[in-house]
Design a protein around this nucleic acid. Sequence first.
DNA 1: GAATGCGAAGGCAGG
DNA 2: CTTCGCATTC
Length: 723
Amino acid sequence: MNQNTDILTSLNPEQADAVTANNGPVLILAGAGSGKTRVLVHRIAWLIQQQQVAPHDILAVTFTNKAAKEMRVRIESLLPFSIAGMWVGTFHGLANRLLRAHYQQAKLPQTFQILDSADQLQMIKRICKDLELDPKKWPPKQFQWMISDHKERGLRARHVNPEGDYQLQKMHTVYQQYEETCQRAGVVDFSELLLKAHEVLLENPTILEHYQQRFKHILVDEFQDTNKIQYAWLQLLSSQHKGIFAVGDDDQSIYGWRGAEVENIRNFSNEFPNAQMVKLEQNYRSTSNILNAANALIENNAQRLGKKLWTDSGEGDRITLYGAFNEIDEAEYVIKQINRLARDGVRHDNVAILYRSNAQSRLFEEQLMRSNIDYKVYGGLRFFDRKEIKDALAYLRLIANPHDDAALTRIINRPTRGIGAKCITSVQARANAEGITLWQAIETLTKGTELTARTAYVLIKFTQLIESLQQQSTTLSLEDMVTNVVETVELHTLYEKEAPESAATRRENLIELGNAAAQVSSELDGEDPLSTFLAYTALESSEEDDETADRNCVQLMTLHSAKGLEFPVVFLTGMEEGLFPHSRSMDDPDQLEEERRLCYVGITRAMQQLFLTHAHVRRMFGEAKYSMRSQFIEEMPEELITDVSLPAKPKAAPISEPTSLFDEPDMEGMPFYLGQHVAHSKFGEGVVLNIDMQGVHPKVEINFNDVGNKLLNMEYAKLTPLE
DNA sequence: GAATGCGAAGGCAGG
DNA sequence: CTTCGCATTC
């Protein structure tokens, strides 16, 4: 067997077409479970082996580190040699690499640091405070969102025309201040990485030409998730050889909220002339019942490139629908099913519980724990986001670059060393007044005379601490540097004082940080160890490595983090109006379509069995909320679904005691019950949300399908029960 | 200046 | 139900 057949035999005709497509622009419209990664990997192997393309000339971009890693491993298993020279990575990782290589052109210090969104928010809060913006009227989060949104569209503060709009004026000021502060401190946030990398290419023709020449083939995974800047990058880099090979699925575009433009994939053929398109529609994952439900659902989206998944495997089981009384009942039902499945031989790690938002995991965790079922929650707190880790990292960041204001603010008084709020405020005031970093402000202030002797003393002690750490680290290995910081600063004593019960865990985590450092330094290739490690901690989630890999546990995650994965059994939970689709997306057709795509992603994760669950009443933010089941359920063909919900118990409940919904039928003669479907002569059909028997005029709150929530007087409203 | 306690506010998704 | 900012007390 020659290598050509080796690479192509295992592929279906469409996959083979994709793998052997011309060098020009290619778009692979790859449905869920259609072998997308396979095509990417085989394409690269085919280029290298059949077209004699050097790995060095290939750039492969993904969105997650996991996908990048998987791609690399799979290519290397197809090829008899290493592909070390190939650039494989995430957009953020590659941007970081580019900026490290060309830090002068990027006007960044060589040791520039990366801000995560928490750091970013802190900095924005500080700026808002300096500008004396009332956080109630001007929530810092909103500025954070606006800044990211602008950067993702390639807009800097100077591109914002603040005239006229008061809101825009404020935003412009904050954005400008933020840019300046970051620039001074030598830090970049996530979107800045991409934006700056793009600017470096645009503004430096020699650099641009170098990469344009080099990357004869650019392969992009999850193309539907690219934002404007990422797209501009790809266009720029591919403009010489036109060797762009984009793989994606417009039906799985679920990151609009962080700037992804689904138009990038929809308009591919217009933007890249002579583009070839290959559709992969044969699905190797799910039963046809599951696929048909997914197909029917996504048909409700107006704007699509159009694609219909099919499979030659069997129908499979019907989809199970369970409408629970409340969220506890929902969790109990799911656990009961998991136990039942286990008796039928389904391993726990074959089961995934998916939900719209992270907060929903708690109930399932409690129930799983009670039933002694091992589980793993994905995407919660990142290891590198833990408090103790961020503290230690902040010290390391200051060692690398003392002007890193975000890091300095974090630990200047952690552990407490007598530098209080007043002192910090005066340092910040000085920094603002002179346009210098906090570190520089401390230096100026301690040399001057306006500080009290005591304040000057503690500040000098602090700078000496950092300087001595810097001194020591010149001779230390990366992992010793970590240990040295932790011990010198006595971080563990801080945690023992704060929360003795978790001090042991924090200590272990700090040791683990040392291990991570050792790991990174063993993989160095001439880069600066500290900066590389710090960039790594910002860009890598460090999720998988551990022992959970072979534990037989139920998988819990959000729908977003489930993308790209598959499970024999999937529970799609919290299928309620307001939760999924999320209330903030329900009024905007575009956002509703994105929610629907998210649902589509969820359905297509399931290989054999799919369960849909929803709760009639759910405690949210401490109070009971009643919801109709998700419209997405109604959009799936009835004949594919078996409803195993218990028959509804028509009982009313007073507004004051919503928890007694199912056991206190104390309102005799009440014509309505919560969750009941009713019709109104003017407003159409709706569902009873609340009943208020207090007061002279009993009122009923109804969520109408067409006109939203209304509070009606029960005596006058002409309501007809529909059930 | 630090520790503690209180009330208010905010609460979707992730690199 | 949590987190965060703020005020009070030590």
